[in-house]
């Protein structure tokens, strides 16, 4: 009896907090049929927001995947200077509020900031353009790949890499033909998490965006903008689009979660 009470209490909590709200937003979006949704999503502002989100993701994710794998490899296999400090820096984006991350980018690239002074003197606009949004996105999504890769690298050990080395493989050959295949699922999983964060980031990019509709808004910023402009259909449509993307990401996470720690 006690078992059932706990089971349904827990399920009820989940349903009310997660499942029903997501269902209600889908229902509200299509309350007036398909065509208003299509109109809202094909408007100039919505298309622009989607393009900006994809652009930022397309730049930020490869940076974090390439440098994340490299940094993870150096942390696990080579001597990094001050490893505790490197670890602290890698984990910092998780410990900081996205708004504080946005603020630190704002301060660094602002008119009186260390880099901003130079940029403003030479008329190179970064703050309030997509460039600053990319920088903020790279910052918030930096830890995912490194943190996935390091434990797997430590777990698989160095025997295979050494075997490759003894057999005459160069360091690069050893990495691409032995190490990378062994950690590929960890890389894939970390990449999925990075994409999810890059697509959905709101707080950090909000602070460094120009806020102009149809130019400086990513999809999450556009959702917020539409809610404030009392345009629920557009807000729900864009929100549901993001929710669908994250559902795909969730399925990917579930599919790869079990594989990432297993060697092949």
């Amino acid at each position: 009896m006690r078992k059932y009470v706990l089971r349904y209490a827990v399920l009820g909590y989940l349903v009310m907090l997660l499942a029903v709200p997501v269902f209600v937003i889908a229902y509200r979006t299509f309350a007036h049929g398909l065509s208003p949704v299509w109109d809202a999503l094909s408007s100039h502002a919505a298309v622009n927001a989607l393009e900006l989100s994809l652009l930022i993701t397309a730049i930020a994710v490869p940076i974090n995947v390439i440098f994340g794998v490299a940094t993870g490899w150096f942390l696990a296999r080579r001597k990094m200077p001050l490893p505790w400090l490197v670890n602290a820096v890698i984990n910092m984006p998780f410990a900081m509020s996205p708004v504080i991350i946005g603020l630190s980018v704002f301060v660094l690239y602002g008119r009186t900031g260390w880099i901003g002074t130079y940029l403003f003197a030479h008329n190179i606009p970064v703050l309030f353009t997509w460039k600053a949004m990319v920088i903020a996105t790279v910052f918030v999504s930096l830890p995912f790949v490194v943190r996935e890769v390091v434990p797997v690298l430590e777990e698989i050990g160095t025997e295979q890499e050494q075997a490759a080395q003894v057999l005459g493989a160069s360091a690069l050959q050893g990495f691409f033909r032995v190490t990378l295949p062994a950690i590929r699922w960890a890389v894939v999983y970390g990449t999925i998490l990075t994409v999810a964060r890059a697509l959905g980031e709101y707080g950090a990019v909000n602070l460094v965006s120009s806020g102009f509709v149809g130019q400086g808004l990513t999809l999450p910023l556009y959702v917020d903008n539409r809610v404030n402009q009392l345009d629920p259909t557009a807000a729900y449509s864009a929100g549901l689009l993001l929710a669908l993307l994250s559902l795909i990401i969730l399925v990917g996470m579930t599919a790869f979660a079990s594989r990432r720690r297993r060697q092949t």
């Binding site: 997660l18 709200p21 937003i25 959905g200 999450p220 910023l221 809610v227 929100g239 559902l247 579930t254």
Partner: peptide, 19 residues
């Protein structure tokens, strides 16, 4: 479903709860 809050953008989480 437990991981949904990690996958869902925070602003959408807010919108969903607001609805």
């Amino acid at each position: 479903l437990i991981d949904l809050p990690f996958a869902l953008p925070t602003i959408v989480a807010g919108l969903v709860l607001l609805t």
